[in-house]
Design a protein around this nucleic acid. Sequence first.
DNA 1: CCAGGTCAAGGGAGT
DNA 2: ACTCCCTTGACCTGG
Length: 345
Amino acid sequence: MIRHIGYACVNTQLQAKKVKMSTARKSTIDAGGEEVITDLILSNLDSLYKILEWNHKKKIKFFRMGSELFPWLGTYDIRKFKRFDEIEYNAGFVGEYAREKRMRLTFHPGPFNVLCSPNEEVVEKTIKELDAHSEIFDLMGFAPSFDNKINIHVGGAYDDKEATLKRWVQNWRRLKDSTRQRVVVENDDKSSMFAVTDLMQLHKMCNKELPITFDFFHHKFHTGGMTEKEALDAAVSTWPKGVVPATHYSESRREEKVKIITDIFRNNRIPWEDLEKWPTFKEAYDFYSHIKYQAHSDYVDGPIDSHGHTIDVMIEAKMKEQAVFGLRDADTVRKLRAETPLLNG
DNA sequence: CCAGGTCAAGGGAGT
DNA sequence: ACTCCCTTGACCTGG
């Protein structure tokens, strides 16, 4: 069964009302220093609280926080800031709210975090940034647990998976203990990279202290010879007792858009305004059929097969929280799709 | 207020 | 060589 269904980082409806994470460019940070960062953090914590309140009202208990919550994470020591106490108090307040409502909060640091990089500078930056993500959970009052996962990919293959994984493990050991108790790895969507079967090897190399997040969509592009059930079984087995395994689910943007455009022309329905750009079906089809297949759709149809396990599912779709509602009922997704411009991104 | 140019970061794939 | 993709397009400036 699926316990929680969640969404990632952005709430499209609240975003329209300016409730969102804000960051700043390097030049602004350099000019403004810790004052600018402090203001951004406090404002972002306020937005996060509003998003969580919204989630609670809508009975959504699973949410991925954006790393911009603390802009330029890993480049400064928050504890040295003048207004650290204020930050700590507010972070603790939001964390307490999440615990009270029994919400699961996670992070997914960017693809620039590469523990296995041959470049020591990249590794050092990665370690700093991962430790900093972990410290945010500390500030929020969460004890180290894979419940609050910090999800990353292996990050590179360098045409030598064996050596790369060895390097990954060495550098993983350099993380703070509390960080290692939160970091999990996700399977990749490229055949040159790491499928669940590769990650199982990594899991063993890490003394079985590294859980695997199963990404349903990525698995389709890189099965590593496993069926979906086999891969999910394996990934689920890597999570400790007492922590519900987390998974990611998304669908193809190209398939979604091509299906919509085909339906419009087939049914001769009145097109969206922006469809006037495409006078013929062929032109429209050509355009949409060139969208990268691996890109994420606006909404998802499911069904999601938990293959008998109890799992949490993070929906990775462009329309975010609306995609969660869409998944709850097919009529809703039809209505939402009809209201979404074809050319949104 | 808006449009457009620009913006931290690593690695891989498609063109 | 350039663009897109991934965690999240958003910041910032000039008109």
